[in-house]
Amino acid sequence: MSQSDLTMGTHLSVPERSSPFAMPSKKLAMWLFLIADAATFATCLVAYGFLRNGSLNWPTPFKFFPTVVNTMVMTFILVTSSLTMALGVRAAKMGDQDAAYRWTMLTAAGGSIFVLLHVHEWMDLIDEGVRLSRNPWGNALFGASFFTITGLHLIHVMAGIVVLIVVGLRCRGGRCDAGDVEITGLYWHFVNLVWMFVVPLVYLLNVSK
């Protein structure tokens, strides 16, 4: 029992409504979702690392060109889209709805290029004979873990693009809710953050030197 409760006579102290985390519920919920999503990605990456570490003949097929170059470009685009996203959130927060619209759309465009490059890369690998169940170079789990992890990430990016476009259009219509732009931004940054781990683990550890 708090001390303040006991000694009061006529005046009862009533603290104001407040959240200990001092943020809107929507933003909190997005952060919570991101924690869960981090655990989901971590599960996939741990599973991949576990199996790769325990395998003798893990293939390292990725050549500098095209795969690593492509990955560099994809990473560059994704990091850049994080910058545009951050600027979009800033614009929305400052009430500049047109700028928010432009930055969000630019981010969505970056994401789309990323998806195109990624899908192109997938197609190349599939042409080379890489499948979920097999691949031409060795351990069958190479294809399985590659497609699972990058696929999970790709789904996240595609969902993010859809949300970005919806939120962006709402901004243009003058119905911009800065909070919505902000939590979309959180999601987008998180997806890009995951890519920072996917690149070294899934791509760069598997380059052929």
């Binding site: 519920s25 600027l87 909070g179």
Partner: peptide, 17 residues
């Protein structure tokens, strides 16, 4: 959505990007 209508008490936006 029933938010708690908290103001975002994070650092203010604006200034130099």
């Amino acid at each position: 959505v029933l938010t708690n209508r908290q103001d975002d008490r994070g650092a203010p936006y604006g200034g130099n990007p």
